[in-house]
Design a protein around this nucleic acid. Structure first.
Length: 882
RNA sequence: GGGUGUUUAGCUCAGUUGGUAGAGCGUCUCCCUUACAAGGAGAGGGUCGGGGGUUCAAGUCCCUCAACACCCACCA
């Protein structure tokens, strides 16, 4: 690090310049690199891999900051800390990006062919792979880039094959025809968790199906008349008397005349619609189940593109028509035919593709599935028996609820960019072999479908450590990982699957703690999204306020309950102002260290103020450790902010200014100033890494550590505990505050020093004498003289009661005595109110009988205290009136 | 339909074993005091969503109602 002259440091903290240099300093010194051979205890985190297509957003900023705080804290606390970065190949998302590029050239992926398309996508990926991680450097992320991984790299692909084949061999992966959520735009199946439901205003059409061979008809209500050609039956509830006569009879589908039976099935709700449902097994999940129960063959009438199929079942004028266009025409045809009896407005939920918001088409097709139930058992047990703990705890319920009702996971995707399913079909016989490699490329062709991206993400905590080889140094040292940090939105997508796969394939939970934080929202509480235009770009914030300001602000907003976090641009002023405060307090200390030696604090020569700040620091260190260990990061930020600003800057530094004037105290005061600054910076370092490193490097000191990032994290030390002195300091604060209050109340200019007379009670007099210099300087007092506590006070004075003593300020010409009387009476009234309430308690025998003894004593002590102060104030008022 | 969360100062929110409420911002007053005006000093501001209960004592525990937010399910 370059040395800098303290006088040259700007009065405003320059975040941009500092951050760039500091990050480089860390990288150049390999501080982020973890050693798998280290004897230290391991602490490891794997990053939730961002999409390669992704750009940094506020969600990352929060997630990465929290991980970085944990990593830095543990690195400083004697752990071998490893944070593995990486990216996700994001099958559909990435493919979509490249396809969009192709479209500009007038091409489709089909034009290129699979091989060329993959080549092109790899090229794109290699060009963009590191981009988002580079952006994360701006966040100060101390991850180990030498271990960077990609969910589609060789190692991850090997892990995927290993897992797929093993699951298949165990019978936990199967291929089958099921109704899946089909996205006509993506041209692929998607899983249940990728489907989102939106309420839409639709219609409920009532259509009449005439009975065959007799008069009469059954009326069916449907929201999807275009599936009418795929009907295989009409179902009614077996207990529905309206229809009991009709069960078993045959009806005719309007428009085509195909005959279908009326059947009974419990699935039908008697009270909904007309109580009769058309059954279309190929295009509705519930109908599929009904169809299976009654052995109907499904009839496809809508194809993969969402268009009416050109088949015999569908009237030829509709062939190839988009489903919604077809719907309009069918309605018209039915109406013309007098089969349409009624249309009603109907609000219902429609499934949408999470990625592109296209309405999902339930479609019967051949897909690959993972049988989840047997795998879920252990994943449930691991959370129930405490091997894995969720923070906040309530997410456990959420996780368990989902796991206990888990459905099979559709893992095949009809895309090209991804892990191609390792199944091979014989070109002639069609025989299928599932294996890591093609058994005979001459005669076998590979399954064209790829795996869901989350399949490979689910292996992330161990595929990054060398799995399937469990003998690597990293695997042995760093697996299982320590904690997983993420938002609740991907508990099902990702967390649940990592737990499931980790337990199945490594026999261990991949992490012992899942730390779930809130989601970042805009100032109105809306989710940030590009389409809403309400996003805040973290890079913009960093440029404007600084990285440490961003980090500090965000962490200060993290609550233990993991509430969502509302942010706006201006909120980051909070962190920026704090960074600037740290900067300037540091400048002050550095400017006042001339002549200081490298020795430790001399404990035999400490003032009451020194002891107070050391005691305070000590307690803060204790609390901060406890809070970080318990993932109370927001609380940690508040404690440090309060300590540094309100205790260290507002009080100790001001006191130090007095002590620095005293030649006997100067040297030791410098040491205390330096020590407390050093320790404060260390405590703050995990949250605000750059500024703390920068300042720490500037402190003249003898240190065994090369940088704060690898310095020891402060912990509670018995020898720094001075509870008695800390309590005595209250007298300093109270005295100065009440004198300032008097000054302000009577508009006494700061330039005017006034004298005071302290009517001290005996035991407080030495304390007042010890703190005279502080009072003089900080409350702008001229002379201090003493009088007996019992002595009556000067008549024309303002005054203050501090603890049990009275402080009198003779200000004959400066104050309005009526005002002063009013001021005192107001205080008196407040005390009286409190005393009455407390006495009420003490006089209540039930309170005395039931309350804890220390509470009773506290109450009694407080009443004593109030009585003393009341008397003192009354005396003051007396002498003012006389 | 099931579940979770939220409701505390003008605004945004803290408040882990129950002991009469805190912060930041904003407001008002004073101050460019030799670290910092992105600052310092002082002040004002709340019947802790409504109702009921347990308790000597409830923002904190229980019940109930209301409003808002989100998650799961998906009755055509």
């Amino acid at each position: 690090m370059t040395t800098t002259k303290i006088e040259d440091l700007p009065t405003v903290y320059n975040a941009a310049e500092t951050e760039e240099n500091i990050y480089k300093f860390w990288e150049d010194n390999n501080f982020f690199k973890a050693d798998a051979k280290s004897p230290k205890k391991p602490f490891s985190i794997v990053i939730p891999p961002p999409n390669v297509t992704g750009v940094l957003h506020m969600g990352h900023a929060l997630d990465e900051t929290l991980q970085d705080i944990l990593v830095r804290y543990h690195r400083m606390s004697g752990y071998e800390a490893l944070w593995i970065p990486g990216t996700d190949h994001a099958g559909l998302a990435t493919q979509a990006v490249v396809e969009k590029q192709l479209a500009k050239e007038g091409l489709t992926r089909q034009d290129l062919g699979r091989e060329k398309f993959l080549e092109r996508t790899w090229k794109w990926t290699n060009e963009h792979k590191g981009a988002i991680l580079d952006q994360m450097k701006r966040l100060g992320a101390s991850f180990d880039r030498t271990r960077e991984r990609f969910t589609f790299d060789k190692g991850c692909s090997d892990a995927v094959k290993e897992v797929f084949v093993k699951l298949y061999e165990k019978g936990l992966i199967y291929k089958g025809a099921y109704i899946v959520n089909w996205c006509p735009r993506c041209q692929s199946a998607i899983s249940d968790v990728e489907t989102e439901y939106e309420t839409e205003q639709g219609h409920l059409w009532e259509i009449s199906y005439p009975l065959k061979g007799e008069s009469g008809a059954i009326i069916v209500a449907t929201t999807r008349p275009e599936t009418i050609f795929g009907d295989v039956a009409i179902a009614v509830n077996p207990t529905d008397y309206k229809y009991s006569e009709l069960i078993g009879k045959t009806v005719v589908i309007p428009l085509t005349g195909r005959e279908i039976p009326i059947i009974a099935d419990e699935y039908v709700d008697k009270n909904f619609g007309t109580g009769a449902v058309k059954i279309t097994p190929a295009h509705d999940p519930n109908d599929f189940e009904v169809g299976k129960r009654h052995n109907f063959k499904p009839i496809w009438v809508i194809d993969e593109e969402g268009k009416m199929k050109a088949c015999g079942e569908v009237p030829s004028n509709l062939h190839g028509l988009d489903r919604y266009e077809a719907r309009k025409q069918i309605i018209k045809m039915l109406d013309d035919n007098h089969s349409l009896l009624r249309v009603r407005e109907h609000e219902h939920n429609v499934g949408k593709c999470q990625r592109c918001n296209t309405t999902i088409e339930p479609l019967l097709s051949e897909q690959w599935f993972v049988k989840m139930e047997p795998l879920a058992k252990e994943a449930i047990a691991a959370v129930k028996d405490g091997r894995i703990k969720f923070i906040p705890e309530r997410w456990e319920k959420n996780y368990l609820g989902w796991m206990e009702n888990i459905r099979d996971w559709c893992i095949s995707r009809q895309i090209w960019w991804g892990h191609q399913i390792p199944a091979y079909y014989h070109k002639v016989t069609g025989e299928m072999v599932v294996a890591k490699e093609n058994p005979d490329p001459e005669n076998y062709v590979q399954e064209t479908d790829c795996l869901d991206t989350w399949f490979s993400s689910g292996l992330w905590p161990f595929s990054t450590m060398g799995f399937p080889n469990e003998e690597t140094d990293d695997f042995k040292k760093f697996y299982p990982t320590s904690v997983l940090v993420t938002g609740f939105d991907i508990i099902f997508f990702w967390v649940a699957r990592m737990i499931t796969m980790g337990l199945e394939f490594t026999g261990k939970a991949p992490f012992s703690t899942v730390y779930i934080h809130g989601l970042i929202r805009d100032e109105k509480g809306q989710k940030m999204s590009k389409s809403k235009g309400n996003t805040i770009d973290p890079v913009v914030i960093i440029n404007k306020y600084g990285c440490d300001a961003l980090r500090f602000t965000m962490t200060s907003l993290c609550t233990y309950g993991g509430q969502d976090i509302k942010i706006s641009d201006e909120r980051f002023e909070y962190g920026r102002n704090f960074a600037n405060k740290i900067w300037n307090a540091s400048r002050f200390v550095l400017m006042n260290l001339d002549g200081v030696d490298n020795n430790e604090i001399d404990f035999s020569n400490l003032t009451i103020a020194d002891k107070w700040i050391l005691d305070k620091l000590n307690n803060v260190a204790k609390e901060v450790n406890t809070n970080i260990e318990n993932y109370r990061i927001g609380e940690t930020a508040h404690i440090l902010y309060d300590f540094f600003w309100n205790s260290y800057c507002d009080w100790y530094v001001e006191i130090a200014k007095v002590q620095l004037q005293d030649s006997e105290l100067k040297l030791n005061t410098q040491r205390v100033l330096r020590y407390v600054l050093d320790m404060s910076l260390r405590l703050l370092h995990p949250i605000m890494p750059h500024i703390t490193e920068r300042v720490w490097q500037l402190i003249p000191k003898k240190s065994e550590f090369k940088a704060i990032i690898v310095a020891d994290y402060p912990v509670y030390k018995e020898e720094l505990s001075f509870p008695e002195e800390a309590k005595e300091m209250e007298l300093v604060f109270e005295t100065i505050k009440s004198l300032r209050n008097v000054r302000q109340s009577f508009n006494i200019p700061m330039g005017l020093n006034f004298n005071i007379i302290i009517h001290a009670v005996e035991e407080e007099k030495p304390v007042f004498q010890a703190i005279e210099s502080y009072i003089k300087r900080m409350a702008k007092v001229g002379e201090i003289s003493y009088a007996e506590a019992s002595e009556s006070t000067a008549k024309k004075s303002a005054s203050a009661v501090v603890s049990a003593s009275k402080i009198v300020i003779p200000l004959e010409n400066l104050i309005d005595f009526n005002e002063e009387i009013a001021r005192q009476e107001k205080k008196l009234a407040k005390l009286e109110g409190e005393r009455k309430s407390l006495s009420g308690r003490i006089n209540n025998p039930k309170f005395v009988a039931n309350a804890k003894p220390e509470i009773i004593n506290q109450t009694k002590d407080r009443i004593e205290e109030i009585l003393i102060q009341e008397k003192a104030i009354n005396d003051l008022i007396e002498s003012l009136k006389s």
